[in-house]
Simulated assay, not measured.
Amino acid sequence: MNTRFVASQSVEIAVPEQPVPIQHYLRQPKRLVYALVDPSRMEQLSHDQFRLKMRPLSFMMLSIQPTVDMKVWADADGSIHLKSVRSEIRGVEYINQRFGLNLIGKLYPVEINGVTYLKGKADLEVKVELPPPFWFTPQAILEATGNALLKSVLLTVKQRLMHQLLLDYRHWASEETGVPVSDLGTGLSPNQQII
């Protein structure tokens, strides 16, 4: 039974002002990757490709562990792009041979009323042929369960992005300028918030 699951997630973050603009930080996509994902689950394959070993996920009665190879690159305008180039499911060979994962993401800086924001969107799609035990489960239940699982994966990435990325940017700005992190402050004015 061929099934398709989809999820999308958008993000908008007010970026605290630091001595070095966020655009300079974004020219190093590797830093973004390591801010987004637990470094112990990430392996760098080349200057712009990374292998992410996700935590095991439960889908109905299956436990699966997706592994995704991603290409990450920066444009001259400061946009960062992320695209899956290969995927594998560990744990269930039947599904691994009938599985496809597509991830496309973009993160870019914009300035609104003197405040820099990072805006982005990620789209995740999984196409899979489920094994015979699932053939008797209504398609609507399978799709709702799969879509919810993908949405939770993207939500976890979004939460890490909103906290880890700004923290890493602050530390990077400290290293670049030689100013201790404690002296940089958060850079947020009282009316700025993470959205």
Results as ranks from 00 to 15, higher is better:
T3C: 04
R4E: 01
P16A: 07
E17I: 06
R27L: 12
K30D: 07
R31S: 12
R31A: 10
A35I: 04
L36A: 05
L36H: 09
L36T: 00
V37L: 11
P39Y: 03
M42C: 02
M42L: 09
Q44D: 05
Q44P: 07
Q49W: 08
F50H: 02
R51D: 08
K53V: 07
R55M: 05
P56K: 11
F59Y: 12
M60D: 10
S63Y: 05
M70Q: 09
K71M: 14
W73E: 06
G78K: 04
I80H: 02
S84L: 02
V85G: 02
R86W: 12
S87A: 08
G91C: 06
V92I: 12
E93H: 14
I95P: 02
F99E: 04
L107C: 08
L107V: 13
I112K: 05
Y117I: 02
A122Y: 15
V126N: 06
K127D: 03
V128M: 04
P132I: 12
F134E: 04
A140T: 07
L142W: 01
G146M: 04
L154A: 08
L154H: 05
L154F: 08
K158M: 11
L161I: 15
L165S: 08
A173S: 14
E175M: 05
T177Y: 15
V179D: 01
L184E: 00
G187Y: 14
N191L: 12
